[in-house]
């Protein structure tokens, strides 16, 4: 029995401890906002936070999580009011939207450790997230916008 704390809520997990967190979240605990894209840690669609750090849930076994806190896209804010989520909407970033949960989780983690990233910082931090629709330039713009929004919120 493993206790998984997802978005502040504790869940008892009785299945295979080797199961990647992705499938535990999606199939067992029913958090479907976290997406499958490759299963090999190559595309970033499955990115979630574990104790605030971005990880690829598709290659992270549940047994490796232990007591750490998991945050998924659903837990980022109560009603989508996180600056990154707001910036994404205001710039119409998504096309199909499928990779965007992972993109947003990676962007949030970036901004948490670097409040004003430049384009190179963004390229580096986001390089593990693929978007086949090709929304990269809008995501970059949205990260800058979110940084400004967040700064002002803190500044006020």
């Amino acid at each position: 029995m493993i206790t998984l704390t997802v978005n502040g809520k504790a869940h008892q997990f009785n299945d295979d401890g080797e199961m990647p967190l992705l499938w535990a979240l999606r199939d067992v605990l029913k958090y479907s906002g976290t997406k499958y894209g490759c299963g090999k840690g190559l595309c970033g669609a499955c990115t979630v936070h574990v104790d605030g750090q971005p990880i690829r849930s598709c290659i992270t076994p549940v047994s490796a999580i232990a007591e750490q806190k998991i945050t998924t896209i659903e837990g980022l804010s109560e009603q989508g009011e996180h600056p990154v989520q707001q910036a994404w909407q205001s710039l119409n970033v998504p096309q199909c939207g499928y990779c965007q949960s992972g993109q947003i989780m990676s962007a949030v983690a970036l901004l948490d450790r670097n409040a004003k990233p430049n384009d190179q910082d963004i390229d580096l931090a986001m390089s593990g997230n693929i978007c086949r629709c090709g929304t990269y330039q809008r995501i970059k713009k949205a990260i800058h916008l979110a940084a400004d929004l967040a700064t002002e919120v803190k500044g006020s």
Binding site: Q85, Q89, Q100
Partner: peptide, 21 residues
């Protein structure tokens, strides 16, 4: 005009083929 599914995408509330339960 903003995307009709924009908010759902940003909050992970969309249903794709993979997400049907």
């Amino acid at each position: 005009v903003a995307l009709v599914d924009g908010e759902k995408i940003a909050t992970g509330a969309t249903v794709f083929g993979f997400d049907v339960e």
